[in-house]
Design a protein around this nucleic acid. Structure first.
Length: 219
DNA sequence: CCTGGGATTTTCT
DNA sequence: GAAAATCCCAGGA
């Protein structure tokens, strides 16, 4: 189908990798089922000086993967109930990663109602669509969709079991190029979300998204 | 348009 | 013990 992005792709400047990930397709494979989405929004976490990055206060057990090889997944839990999925960039020793914030799906995935207790299927999905929705917390009113980092992970069943995986190996998660070229003019740079604590780094325009996409978490 | 609170648990000080 | 790379909802201007 597409050409899988390799270690060389990820072993470059983090801002470059972040921008070039727009329009690429992320593939999640579980058994013989696949779910695929087009990446439409990302954020760069760029080196040890970046006060918004987990790596800014040194290496810890949680963030060690960011200091490692490019092309590995960095998955962590946030706010006690969501996972965030990142791809490590740049050479070993330079801690950096790109957060995948939103992917575009077919319209069947747009704002499905939350799974209620005891319900195991998402009714609006077509029968041939893979069912990769992770369980929701009790009483959650979260919609099943992919326009945000937590919701994307939920829909793609990404949790800490996928932390530290080589995603250039086409195992159960990878990113591929299907030949779509994104023009600079269709790319928006914006401030990152939820990093108000990051002093001067909170104003860096290190969030990138596709102009006009309805799947972006925030415009 | 904006601000703020609650849910929930891991991580770090 | 506090904060957190989130999300949803309510309330005020």
């Amino acid at each position: 189908m597409g050409k899988i992005l390799d270690k060389k792709f990820y072993n470059r400047n983090t801002l470059t990798v972040a921008k070039e990930l727009l329009g690429k397709f992320i593939v999640r494979k579980i058994g013989d089922k696949k779910i695929v989405g087009k990446i439409v929004e990302v954020e760069a976490y760029n080196g040890p000086q970046d006060l918004a990055s987990h790596a800014s206060r040194g290496k810890t057990e949680r963030n060690a993967i960011m200091f490692g090889h490019p092309g590995f997944s960095y998955v962590y839990m946030i706010y006690g109930m969501y996972y965030c999925f990142n791809i490590v960039t740049e050479d070993r020793g330079f801690p950096a990663a790109v957060l995948v914030r939103a992917v575009e799906m077919n319209d069947a995935y747009k704002n499905l109602p939350p799974l209620s207790k005891g319900r195991t299927k998402v009714g609006l999905l077509k029968p041939q669509d893979p069912l990769l929705i992770s369980p929701l917390p009790r009483g959650s009113k979260e919609k099943i969709t992919t326009n945000g980092p937590g919701k994307f992970c939920r829909a793609f069943k990404i949790d800490k079991k996928l932390n530290g995986m080589d995603i250039t190996k086409k195992k159960n998660l990878w990113v591929e190029d299907r030949g779509k070229k994104i023009k600079k003019a269709d790319m928006v740079s914006a401030k990152r979300i939820g990093v108000d604590y990051a002093k001067e780094y909170k104003n860096k325009l290190w969030r990138f998204y596709l102009k006009g996409s309805e799947w972006v978490s925030r415009k």
